[in-house]
Amino acid sequence: MSVESMTLVKAINSGLRRAMEGDDHVLVMGEDVGKLGGVFRVTDGLQKDFGDARVIDTPLAESGIIGTAVGLALRGYRPVCEIQFDGFVFPGYDQIVSQVAKMHFRSGGRLRLPIVIRIPYGGSIGAVEHHSESPEAYFAHTPGLKVVTCSNPADAYWMIQQAVTADDPVVFFEPKRRYYEKGDVDLDSADSVPPLESARVAAPGTDVTVAAYGPMVKTCLEAAAAAADEGRSLEVVDLRSLSPLDLTPVVESVRRTGRLVVVHEAQRTLGIGAEVAARVTEECFYSLEAPVQRVTGYDTPYPSARVEEEYLPDLDRVLDAVDRTFAF
């Protein structure tokens, strides 16, 4: 068994490398992904090893990146597009929502677009505007797209490979504040890797269910550790797949705990948390001891860096919400 400790950036890089080795129709394309290796170095070294026909430094235009990826996919390629930052995906939004998401549907299943759109997302990096956003709900609201997000290096390594081999288009959100945090990755565990579209229990518990994804999973695990010190047991579920949304472990958990807190960085209204709350209410109405609590960003544009920590959910806000579930 080959277990390596690596950063999340390195895990995606290694996963991409393995995907490119496995299928010479896999391409990487985006702004600065070649010689520079991407602004976060996720694609570091790929152009050197796979050449500039497969690792393409594109012109600076996101609609062009996605639109040409559509054409490449129609020709039989599997493009992995990098959007440099979350807030820059919107020039490509029309191509993603109107073209990528619908091609399989509108062609009656004749045309497939196995495209991966990688988007570093989320805040807490002290950045200027448009560099810290969480636009996942826009995409999860769009039928035809799969939307997934990893929270740790091991998932990152496997999920990016699963996304590349998927025959549906996948929007792959990467928690950029966790990019340089390390974790163990078992490089040979292919047989035991869960499906791309599945949630999983990140930490078992008995008193309250906490559902989170991407950058907030670690925050919630820390909250669970803190709660344990106070004698309260949190079960943390890493949703991983936002579309389709796999609530199986959440529902199973809430039936035991009767309490649910949903946590995400994105703004609250009509976010993933709203959908989780609605579905858990449908499925677990008689098990719930308290209303589903949401811990999220506020319904404002992403704020300036000096106040972003007050905007973002953190350990204390998660525990505060846990307390609220016991107030009923």
Partner: peptide, 17 residues
């Protein structure tokens, strides 16, 4: 959607290359 297919054509042509 007006013009969207010109990018698809260009990408397809990149595949031809």
């Amino acid at each position: 959607v007006i013009g969207a297919q010109t990018l698809h054509a260009t990408g397809y042509a990149m595949g031809v290359q």
